[in-house]
């Protein structure tokens, strides 16, 4: 039997930008990511087992411990859990839901970056068209949006901290664009 294949991150070979005291960019650790699609009732049933109950309020994330459920659409949530046995977790979650639903493993489809620092919102606004003020985009808000020509999921996890999730093939583009937009903040 051959040896087990190792993981290779989509960020391998990419240099993450940083601006001292103003912005840090780190890769979110490997995680279980699931796309949940179904009715709010299905989401509520899942919540009972998963931990955080998926929000029925638009553009809001719920989290409990190291698990989170991000509202992406009225029948779509993005589930995050620490890395582990994705198939086992899915089986336990699905078993709790009677309603028709889809639970699809996208742990490798998406990757994440964490932008932290007083300039994080400004650097995001270099290519994201949303109002990222604390009132318009408070902590706990999550939505799909754009970073220039790439689709992203944006989740504000703290006053100066954002988690950005996107399809892995866009890693080079998004890291390059963040670096370009961060550059002027060094002055």
């Amino acid at each position: 039997m051959s040896e087990t294949a190792t993981r290779l991150s989509a960020f391998a070979g990419l240099t993450l930008p940083a601006v001292r005291n103003r912005l840090s960019v780190t890769v979110a650790p490997d995680a279980i990511r699931y796309s949940l699609r179904g009715s709010p009732a299905a989401a509520a049933a899942l919540g009972a087992v998963f931990g955080p109950v998926p929000s029925t309020t638009a553009c809001r994330a719920t989290s409990a411990g190291d698990r989170a459920a991000l509202w992406l659409g009225p029948d779509e949530w993005y589930l995050l859990a620490p890395d582990g046995d994705a198939a086992a977790l899915a089986a336990s979650l699905s078993a709790a839901i009677d309603e028709p639903h889809a639970l699809v493993d996208i742990s490798h489809r998406n990757v994440g970056l964490i932008l932290k620092g007083p300039r994080a919102a400004d650097v995001l606004n270099g290519a994201c068209p949303l109002d990222l003020s604390e009132t318009a985009f408070p902590v706990g808000m999550s939505t799909r949006t754009l970073y220039a020509k790439a689709e992203i999921i944006l989740w504000r996890t703290g006053l100066d901290t954002f988690r950005v999730e996107f399809w892995r093939s866009f890693a080079g583009y998004i890291v390059g664009l963040i670096a370009e937009n961060a550059r002027e903040h060094a002055v």
Binding site: L8, A10, G126, A127, A148, K149, A150, R168, S169, F170, G172, Y173, G176, L177, E180, N181
Partner: peptide, 15 residues
């Protein structure tokens, strides 16, 4: 703006 060179369009690469 920044849409020039390699950042003009996303360049998608396979694993």
């Amino acid at each position: 703006g920044t849409a020039r060179g390699d950042l003009f369009d996303p360049i998608r690469k396979t694993p």
